[in-house]
Write a protein that binds this DNA or RNA. Structure first.
Lengths: 167, 167
DNA sequence: CCGAACATGTAACCTGTTACATGATTAC
DNA sequence: GTAATCATGTAACAGGTTACATGTTCGG
């Protein structure tokens, strides 16, 4: 089974049809999810592994800098499908930095909690509007997941509003 | 600044008042978020680091198996506070395995998509009811974050229902 | 021609996982 | 007494990050 990084790479290549390792890296670097920084030290070795496993085919461009155009093989597409449709993976609750902190925030004395949550809420609002601005200018293959990212932020904001109005 | 694991350990100790390394591990192992498996190889070295940094104090129990009771120092509580209230961390969108896969699911031909999404939805419903059963029997310090975990799952399920009713 | 962006890759380092090792305590 | 649980820890390994290294192409 593909790892999260390998799956994300396969998906990126598959949705674009063809892609270079550099483009995959760039896509990760500009992603709303900062978890994969798209480090060269992660992406290039992962692509090497995927190519060795026959999931990716590469074609060298007539280029003196060695640009290689990557595409998913039939086997690769099958592996991507298995990775993307495994129901237990879709159910997996990943570590959410906000959720991890929320019980601490809840344990603060009301006045302090109110102040801290207000600061966090302001930062979230800023982050959400930055995100929306980015989405309007830069349409890519990840439209739906980016929209869901916004929803996730909104869910957190709603919780904060509920929590601060409670007392 | 504390790492996610270090912060989660400090929080666990702080909310309980006192805790042993073993109890911290157990709490992680039974957590709804499978991200920290609570591996001994992660927890014990992390606690050693935190103790060396003066954020945790330990007291040996009169016990021949060397049980040590841990508590957060004043410095440790301050570090926990900084970690928990940093607004940029609360805004951070972590990698969400469902969100990562969602654009692939969206790209499937309607009939196949419907089938795959129905399977995933069923798995999610199962997972959510398991979660709720667990929460009713096993109340701990993480009530709010566990409730939020359920909300996160519900958000995904709602998206699936919208996506399958579209066509 | 020069700087920015394109393009690939490696090496040292950090941290988490898996698997192992050791022993004490408790419940039956 | 013996199995399950409590309790701590280490070592080999895997994978990602940072920083470095190298060279090309393109726009002004």
């Amino acid at each position: 089974m593909l790892s999260e990084l390998e799956g994300a790479i396969m998906l990126e290549i598959h949705l674009r049809g063809r892609s270079t390792a550099f483009q995959v890296r760039s896509a990760f670097q500009t992603s709303l999810t900062p978890d994969w920084s798209g480090s060269a030290g992660a992406v290039y070795p992962a692509i090497k592994r995927l190519e060795a496993a026959g999931l990716i085919a590469s074609k060298a461009l007539e280029d003196r800098r060695g640009t290689r155009s990557l595409s998913a093989t039939e086997q690769g597409i099958a592996a991507l499908h298995d990775w993307a449709t495994a129901p237990d993976l879709a159910c997996k609750l990943n570590a959410d930095p906000f959720r991890t902190r929320v019980d601490y925030l809840k344990s603060l004395p009301p006045r302090q909690r109110k102040q801290v949550l207000a600061d966090i809420l302001a930062a979230m609002e800023q982050s959400l509007s930055d995100m929306q601005a980015l989405l309007q200018t830069d349409h890519d293959m990840k439209a739906t997941s980016n929209a869901l990212a916004g929803e996730a932020l909104r869910l957190r904001m709603e919780w904060i509003k509920d929590a601060t109005s409670e007392d």
